[in-house]
Design a protein around this nucleic acid. Sequence first.
RNA 1: GGCCACGUGGCGGAGUGGUUACGCAACGGUCUGCAAAACCGUGCACUCGGGUUCGAUUCCCGACGUGGCCUCCA
Length: 467
Amino acid sequence: MQLRLYDTLTKEKRPFTPLDPSNVRMYVCGPTVYDFAHIGNARPVIVFDVLFRLLRHLYGEAHVTYVRNITDVDDKINDRAARDFPGLPLNEAIRKVTELTEKQFHDDVDALGALRPTVEPRATEHIAEMRTIIEKLVQGGFAYVAEDHVLFSPQAMNAANSVLPRYGALANRSLDEMIAGARVDVAPYKRDSTDFVLWKPAKPGEPSWPSPSGISVPGRPGWHIECSAMAWKHLGEQFDIHGGGIDLVFPHHENELAQSACAFHSDRMANVWMHNGFLQVESEKMSKSLGNFITIRESLADWPGEVLRLNMLKTHYRSPIDWTSKALEESAKTLDDWYEIAADARADRPSDAVIDALSDDLNTPQMIAALHGLRNVAASGSERDRGEFAATLRLLGFLSESAAEWKGRKQQASGVDARQIDDLISNRTAARARKDFKESDRIRDELAAMGVVIKDSREGTTWEIAR
RNA sequence: GGCCACGUGGCGGAGUGGUUACGCAACGGUCUGCAAAACCGUGCACUCGGGUUCGAUUCCCGACGUGGCCUCCA
């Protein structure tokens, strides 16, 4: 089945045709590294990891380039550095914060079963490209210098009679609406309220670089220009897919698109713009003030990464998702079952039904339904059926452990003593053999109180930890 | 205030102009000393009001409800 993807810009689901099938190119906005990533940050990581895996399956592993940036220049980083390392020079403190946070982020998303992107560029290593784009924009009349800032003018962009897209097309609103809806105080150096910063002077002590466009004081880049620069460097002037959270549509992606299109005199930046929906926690917006702010790290203490991953995929990526412990329990139960059936099978070929579901704009709920179908066939089927099920799950980033490891992890987390359990079970088996069911039931209750569920079968009694 | 998305069974959640989503839970059965697990089976839906249509959960309009963006928050 032909891959079809929904494009935020044209608001339609349409067949995906790569610019170059031998190098399919995708850019996704990555984290700003100032603190632990929260569970909402995990959504684009998982969603676009699934897309990355699908593209690799369809076009070959060597023919997909996935770029996810790391934003390491930002006010929040500076604040954090000053707070956590008051004794150090700011630049050194900032490096400590970004290095530490980047490692935390990698550990977290590795645990979620996400493949590393092909390239993970850092903003601070692409200042030269940012300056180049800014110079192009100033020369092209799309940007201007004012009080040591460089500002981009959407008005100038829309006034230009050319192939350029209309500013506001991605966010689906007109410039007039944006002017009317402006709620923030307009900086005095802006010609129009809709102008946004490409470059700004650095405050004393902040990280800074030589400014472009004849500005004498050192400065630092605006947020949007970072992604334009990194995408250009690693994917070229045009590429296939640009992704991120839906909150980034405006202003971030609108502005990125404007910068790149104007700098390169192009009618587009990416062919497809994809945005994942937001996440709520127990039906409430996640926020620090509500006290329901969950980091990936905290979730990983309660659940294996694959449980979080499956749970995230139960909802289509464009819909809002309600993150609840009830849903996580269901996901855990499902994975327990899948591990038992498939984890130790020798992988065969992945299932077409699952690839087809994903090919329909990443219909992961449909994909999961197909997995349940494969599971039922595998449970009573041949080694090959189990192999197909296993291969499909592995393609999707599941089954990274053996069945024994998976089970053992759960036992370890529960803190029960396996030898003690075994002893109790032998006592119970003995009691049952002499038909002392009162005693055998008592032992079963004792085990249940410890959170242990037993299963009797012809081969004997096994046990596991109840969720 | 402006713009946008969504509203499916007890719960989660796809999809479709007329035919089973899927999972969890529930219920019945097989098995079991009794359970649990497993397996087999059953029931349950499309916010409300109009319209288009032979026929609408699916298309159009309206109401109500929920959520998002307009603030460098994924």
